[in-house]
Design a protein around this nucleic acid. Sequence first.
DNA 1: AGCACGCCGACT
DNA 2: GTCGGCGTGCTC
Length: 717
Amino acid sequence: MSSEDGEKGPPREENPAGGEQLALIRETVRKSKEPKAKPRTWRGAPLAEGLPVARVLVDKGLLHLDQFFDYAVPAAMDEKAQPGVRVRVRFGARVVKGRREGGSLHDGFIVERRAESDFRGPLAPLAQVLSTEQVLTPPLLKLCRQVADRYAGALADVVQLAVPPRMARAERDTSPDPRPHPAVPDPGSWQRYATGPAYLQALARGDTPRAVWLALPGPHWPQELALAVATTLASGRGALAVLPDGRAAARVDAALTEILGEGRHVLLTADAGPEERYRRWLAVSRGAVRAVIGTRAAMFAPVADLGLVAIWDDGDSSHLELHAPQPHARDVLLLRAAEERTAFLLGGLTSTVEAAQLVESGWALPLAASRDAVRAAAPLIRTVGDGDQARDEAARAARLPSIAWQVTRDALTRGPVLVQVPRRGYVPRMACDNCREPARCTTCAGPLELRDQGGTPHCGWCGRPAADWHCPECGGFRLRAQIVGARRTAEELGRAFPKVPVRTSGRDTVLGSVGAAPALVIATPGAEPVADSGYAAALLLDGWALLNRPDLRAGEEALRRWAHAAALVRPAGEGGTVVVLGEPTLRPVQALVRWDPAGHALRELAERAELRFPPVSRMASVTGPPAAVADLAETVRLPPGTDLLGPVPLPVPASGPGRTRRHGEPPPGEQWERLLLRVPPGTGSALAASLKAAQIARATRGGNEPVHIRMDPTDIG
DNA sequence: AGCACGCCGACT
DNA sequence: GTCGGCGTGCTC
């Protein structure tokens, strides 16, 4: 936990140049050269007396220009037209022979009521107040604005993510008044962490402690997260916890219900359906419910008097919003922690480099268990490297090392065995054939890719060919792109133990839990069922598939997935054993063996800093048709010290049947390019601001093909 | 983004 | 003479 001064923001950058630049654009776009006039309407209809002007965020009207439009408030709508309500307005009318004509109806939100407008022309009247519900309240608007600026995105896009679509029926229900605060709960299993009870005490006092929490393996974390939420409620404040998927959210929801009973919190996930979800969201927005457990869309939940924001497993890719501007739940919660002066809790079995950076910078304190407690909770980890497999006759015959057979046979007498197999569709990356160090560009340290078989590898970032590559670690000069086939191995296991039931859990059918009886449970990462009394053993067969991905996070991700499976296994003291197929010299394998996720994240962070990778340096990607990317690169006024990497042709995404095109992907048949921009630490927000300014300038000029801008892209190798 | 106004080539 | 090319500007 950190000091309880609410003043300090997260290690977010100051934004002098950027902020001014944006403000300047908003002003010039407004073009209010002439003195303010009294608001007039088109036909002189009677206006509201007090504040006759409504500033409106028009949905999809020029959303890339990111500006508001003023409308006149007819007297009849005066009372209903409050800030935050949804309205309908005419937009896009033209003056034809002194008469206004056309203009289609658009939805929007009233952002502010004002006495006068700085628009010189006559104001159109609001067409309709759709609902009196004040959904886009000033604090929520401010959050949306900050997120839009952080991601060089449009405010209207963020608002669309933050405010759920209206379901009229849900608005008719009246929400109950909030109940009195619950009592402070017992710290329970938080006592296993040296500073755990102190963290809860700080929450109970109304302080704002900030911690990165490395959870012990085992089934306790949902209760612990629920306890943090309940303790914050006891202090009289609200709390918000964001989880990567519905399953995890349901577990925390159940734990919180057990502590507080029904009615003090809501579960905001997609499974509830749009109407029920809006009903729950309204209960939060109206202040009737002050605790929210949910998946990523809940990161915007307008909790009244927020006291704690929490996120579980921030390395899970589900925390990244898929819609523009693709904000990450961790970053949104960091913005909220600063703006709303709340406590912060980032928990997981492993640590992302971003989490490690929060600790390194001193903004958050580590909340971890002692080595003894870790040893008591973790299973025994055994590794099988390539050398072992080569020497192992049985492995060559059956494609599974004999250690794995022994462990499985033994464990199946005591309970279920989890077999983690890779998901389909991994793109292998190039690595040294000799020592398997990932191959990187000697100029910009981007990943090497083989575009056509037998050709020269090229850098995936700057496009330079790497004809004379040699390994900086071992001097080797041969590259390999390895492929793995572990699924068949799992099938063979099933045949080898014919008396044992085989259960599978994967993409289409995810099992929630399995019993304590012996069984082989085959699961892909993320779909592992919980075993009622823990697994007796686990086999992690997807080592190379995880580590060979063209992603900066390959190591972090491998450790994260292994740890998730291993945490479902009984402690070593109860015979729990994990076999991981992976070279014991590799950093993530070592970290798993020692159960030292913090050390792993710190080393990754140091390496990122050295190579000038995110999150130490900040990056943005610009993708689009080659001419558009080049044009933006020419238009943009970048902060000093910006590196331009590329542009390179964008890899064409695998177009499977039924696969919908994601934001920022080229339409079928088009070849797009990607330019990467890299700035030194502390310049990220200036970079975002310049890109947003260039984006707006290009859109205003017209006739330009749009480009997609992404801050902190992750899939760049 | 749409949509209209504006100033230069081939047609009834 | 005018029909229409899409370049430029505006939308409260």
